[in-house]
Amino acid sequence: GKNFAYQNMATIKAYFDKDTHTNNFIGAGGNGVAVDDFNADNFDHGPHGFVGGSPMWVNQAGSRPIAGTSNPPGTPAWGSAWKRATADYYTHQVSMDAHGAHQSYRGNYLDLDPVYRDAYGLPLLRMTFDWQENDIKMNRFMVEKMGKIAEAMSPKAIAVLGKKVGDHFNTASYQTTHLNGGAIMGTHPKTSALNRYLQSWDVHNVFVPGASAFPQGLGYNPTGLVAALTYWSARAIREQYLKNPGPLVQA
Rank of each mutant, 00 (worst) to 15 (best):
T91K: 00
D88R: 14
D97G: 09
L161T: 02
A87F: 03
S95V: 13
Y105G: 03
Y105V: 09
A150H: 04
S104P: 12
W131Y: 15
K156Q: 11
S104M: 07
S80E: 09
N108P: 07
P114I: 13
L112M: 12
H92M: 00
L110W: 02
M96L: 10
N108T: 15
M146D: 03
G147R: 05
A119I: 08
V143A: 13
F129C: 01
A67R: 03
P155R: 03
N139H: 09
L110R: 02
G147D: 10
M146N: 05
I158W: 06
K83P: 00
D113V: 06
P76F: 02
Y105A: 09
L124H: 10
G147N: 12
Y109F: 15
P73D: 13
D97E: 09
V143Y: 03
A67D: 10
G74V: 12
R117E: 05
Q103N: 13
A67Q: 09
R126L: 04
F141A: 07
T91Y: 06
Y116W: 11
V115N: 08
S80M: 03
N108W: 11
A87M: 01
A159P: 12
G79K: 08
N134F: 00
G147Y: 07
W131E: 12
R106F: 10
L122K: 14
A150L: 12
I149V: 15
T69C: 11
R106M: 08
Y89P: 01
M127T: 14
Y116S: 05
H102Q: 13
M146Y: 03
D97A: 11
H102S: 11
K137I: 02
D130C: 08
G100E: 04
Y120A: 15
N134W: 02
T128R: 05
V94L: 15
S70R: 04
K148D: 08
V94G: 01
Y90P: 02
P73F: 07
R106Q: 07
D135R: 03
T128S: 12
W131T: 08
Q132F: 13
K148E: 14
K156H: 05
A101D: 11
S70M: 10
M142I: 03
N139C: 07
A119R: 14
S70I: 04
P76S: 09
S95Q: 14
M96T: 08
Q103H: 06
I149M: 15
I149Q: 11
G74A: 10
G147A: 06
K83G: 05
E133K: 08
D113S: 11
F141W: 06
E133R: 06
A119Y: 03
R117H: 14
A159Q: 15
M146G: 09
Y109A: 04
G121L: 09
G121N: 04
H102P: 00
R140D: 00
G121H: 04
G107T: 13
A152Q: 13
S80G: 00
Y89I: 05
P123W: 08
G107L: 06
A81E: 15
L125H: 04
W78N: 10
N139S: 10
N71H: 01
S70H: 09
R140F: 02
A157R: 07
S70L: 07
R140S: 01
V143S: 02
W82H: 15
S154Y: 07
N71M: 14
M142P: 01
A77F: 13
F129T: 03
G68W: 10
T86S: 12
S95C: 02
N139M: 07
P155Y: 02
M127G: 01
